[in-house]
Nucleic acid binder design. Structure first.
Length: 422
RNA sequence: GGAGAGGUGGCCGAGUGGUUUAAGGCGGCGGUCUUGAAAACCGCUGUAGGGUUUAAUCCCUACCGGGGGUUCGAAUCCCUCCCUCUCCGCCA
């Protein structure tokens, strides 16, 4: 959420910034609402002040055995009734203002490249080289079926499309990757967190999934919960409504969770294989930092995610998302894209973002500086470190052998327990 | 699922209709004392919004788990929801 005062006082700046995202917003109605909200607020506050002072007078008279003027009481009764009506009107306006702001995306950082869609994203760097094959490489789903470690057919039977069953060393590989990544990040100073996979509506609003993207989420009713689409939601909201001390910052968390996504509107995209699933595993990095540090923290967060791929020996590139491709809550995002041989292109395996105070304002996460009065919002960041399913895809495809077996990357062998899956 | 007890500032904790502008304590900040520190003592110390001043300031409003109600007036009374704890039952 953007700062209401900033929007009120700089509507042109906000409008200009959002235009870069391809976002046209009409601020006229908002500005009118704000105007009437402030006018009404002043009226209500002065009437409340009057009511409070008269009530206090009454208390004093009563204490001194005095008699209360019935006419005065009647007058105050009217004032109270009037206030009730005004309060209702104010609440209506406030709700409109609030919901307007909840639907406004974050402002892009000035270093974010201008652009319309993913074609305008800018490559920042590459690491490693794509593997060379002296045979025709197979897509991962075929490898998975031949080795009997991924079962899409039976997953369809028990759940439906966009689900997979991992079996044998496939299941072990998945579990090994989770442990490998968590261990690596913990060694870098991240604290491991295992949160609930179901959260309430407030948490979803806090990180920005709601109210705008309800159709992307799985929801259960009675009682009402949402399935998390990423660990970002429970982990960022860990500190919802808290005032942290400056000494607590920065806070680094690493969290493994399954992620649940409706994938509404992606019919026909990546229908085969593990790339796009309704449920997938992910190890996520989350940071809470001081505002002046957040862009350095974004760089180091991205490097921490990259290190996973480096240790696995997987070729990748990092792209800076352009203004038009930026997510709703993000100010700046680096995507890490891993090389997928059978597709002849790079696919997103991690997305690292700085949200500045956008989520902190929604979730009300603040901190106090030593010796200073008042509070400030923290900056929140997160990034996949990494998406497990897509890492499995990358390993199967990049490490496949002519005989159909798959070599396990060195760094992972202690976790999987074998050197090769055949 | 049944029965009961609770939810108060950064933390602990008092407060059942009107000097409570939320007692007291802890923590934090500043000061006195001290070679320095500790201890002791003194003072200050919640958040948010609106207004005001050149500014430091000052004024007003809201907030005692959320929402609603009663009342001139609610932390306090009523309704409702959420959460925590204890006991019983069930259970991985």
């Amino acid at each position: 959420m953007l700062d209401i005062r900033f929007v009120r006082e700089n509507p042109e700046k906000v409008k200009e910034a959002l235009k870069k995202r391809g976002y046209e917003v009409d601020f006229n109605e908002f500005l009118e609402l704000e105007q009437s909200r402030l006018t009404l607020l002043k009226e209500i506050e002065s009437k409340r002040a009057l009511r409070n002072s008269v009530s206090q007078e009454i208390a004093k008279i009563k204490a001194k055995d005095g008699k209360i003027d019935e006419a005065l009481i009647a007058q105050m009764r009217n004032l109270s009734n009037e206030l009730k009506l005004l309060d209702e009107r104010l609440k209506e306006i406030e709700q409109k203002v609030e919901s307007f702001l909840l639907f406004i995306p974050n402002i892009p950082h000035h270093t974010v490249p201008l652009g319309k869609d993913e074609n305008d994203n800018v490559e920042v760097r590459r690491w490693g080289k794509p593997p060379k094959f002296d045979f025709e490489p197979m897509p991962h789903w075929q490898i998975g079926e031949i080795l009997d470690i991924i079962d899409f057919e039976r997953a369809g039977k028990i759940a439906g499309s966009r689900f997979a069953v991992m079996k044998g060393l496939g299941a072990k590989l998945e579990r090994a990757l989770i442990n490998f990544m968590i261990d690596l990040h913990v060694s870098k100073g991240y604290r491991e967190v295992l949160p609930p996979f179901l959260v309430n509506k407030e948490a979803m609003i806090g990180t920005g999934q709601l109210p705008k993207f309800e159709e992307d989420l799985f929801k259960v009713s009675d009682p009402e919960f949402y399935l998390i689409p990423t660990a970002e939601v429970p982990v960022t909201n860990l500190h919802k409504d808290e005032i942290l001390s400056e000494d607590d910052l920065p806070i680094y968390y690493v969290s493994y969770t399954p992620c649940f996504r409706r994938e509404a509107g992606s019919y026909g995209k990546d229908v085969r294989g593990l790339i796009r699933q309704h449920q997938f595993n992910k190890v996520e990095l989350v940071k809470f930092v001081k505002p002046e540090d957040s862009y350095d923290e974004l760089e180091s967060l991205t490097k921490d995610a990259e290190e996973v791929l480096q240790r696995l020996g997987l070729h990748y590139r990092v792209v800076s998302l352009c203004t038009g491709d930026l997510g709703f809550a993000a100010s700046k995002t680096y995507d890490i894209e891993v090389w997928i041989p059978t597709q002849g292109r790079y696919r997103e395996i991690s997305s690292c973002s700085n949200f500045e105070d956008f989520q902190a304002r929604r979730a009300n996460i603040r901190f106090r500086r030593r010796g200073k009065k008042g509070t400030e919002y923290v900056h929140t960041l997160n990034g996949s470190g990494l998406a497990i399913g897509r890492t499995v895809v990358a390993i199967l495809e990049n490490y496949q052998q002519k005989d159909g077996s798959v070599v396990i990357p060195e760094a992972l062998r202690a976790y999987v327990g074998v050197d090769i899956i055949r």
